[in-house]
Amino acid sequence: MSVLAVEDLHVWFELPDDKELHAVQGISFGLERGERMGLVGESGCGKTTAILAMMGLLPPNASAAGRILLDGEDILAGGDATMRPHRWNDIAMVFQGAMNAFDPVKTIGSQIQEPIETAGLAKGKAARARTAELLELVGISGERQDRFPHEFSGGMRQRAAIAMALACQPKVLLADEPTTALDVMVQAQILELLVRLTDELGLALIMVTHDLPLVSQICQRAAVMYAGHITELGTTTELYHRPLHPYTRMLFGATPDLLAQREVTSIPGAPPRLDQEITGCPFRPRCDSAIDACALSYPPTRTAEPGHSGACFVEAHA
């Protein structure tokens, strides 16, 4: 059984003037124990919103529907009452920009200790010891817990943010752009850490990013999101070598590759607004393969091989 399964998840944001923005439009996928999965797509496609829904941490103007199964139990069904027992304990998150979100006037250690004490895992000395242990786990000497955020480099603050998310030994870690804004070398260090943590702790990881090569490097599978939908889901090898969806193919085509001499081509246009109803395939205005049918309804999902599926009319007829 998947440790986490998301079924037909929707999220709407209420906007002023009775308007609504449909940020996540029915996404489904499963995640196995110890697996690393990428959630990729352009800015605004709903990545952060989707994982905030899994944490039950959506802002007040949002509402969610669908099922979020943790070890088979639907934690979305009962609202906060069913979410709260699992949040941080079973499913935890490193927020987008977390490394810059530490309180500057409190030590790093005290900020990790706080949730440990709140969760009733340990108190006082024991909580301090646990904090040191967590820092060691992410490659920071435990003695440095009395340092302040400004005494840590960006990479170290990101490690500390990861340590904090691991405080209650979750089974699932959601990491939102954990290496964006870090130098390539520090990025490589953090990726190495995430791989080690998932391998050693059997932790399942969802890595949210707009950077495809990063996902190719460390994830076994990935979901490509566009305009609130998962347009393609498969192993990273399938996505790169046998993409089912034109968006996946065009995204890779826009990504420069250090060693390949092939041309890089941008994708014309921009993603659609999500506060208006979209008929047909949301990618159609930018797609290089669109046919008449694409304008009429949302494309059906086709499964090419077990676990590899895409939502596109043209590919569905192929």
């Binding site: 390539v184 070398m185 990025q187 490589a188 990726l191 950077d211 495809l212 090569p213 990063l214 190719s216 490097q217 192993t235 990273t236 090898t237 790169y240 070598h241 890779f252 990504t255 590759d257 250090l258 060693l259 390949a260």
Partner: peptide, 9 residues
Amino acid sequence: VVPQPDPEQ
């Protein structure tokens, strides 16, 4: 350390 888009690389 530059990530490659091809996972088989």
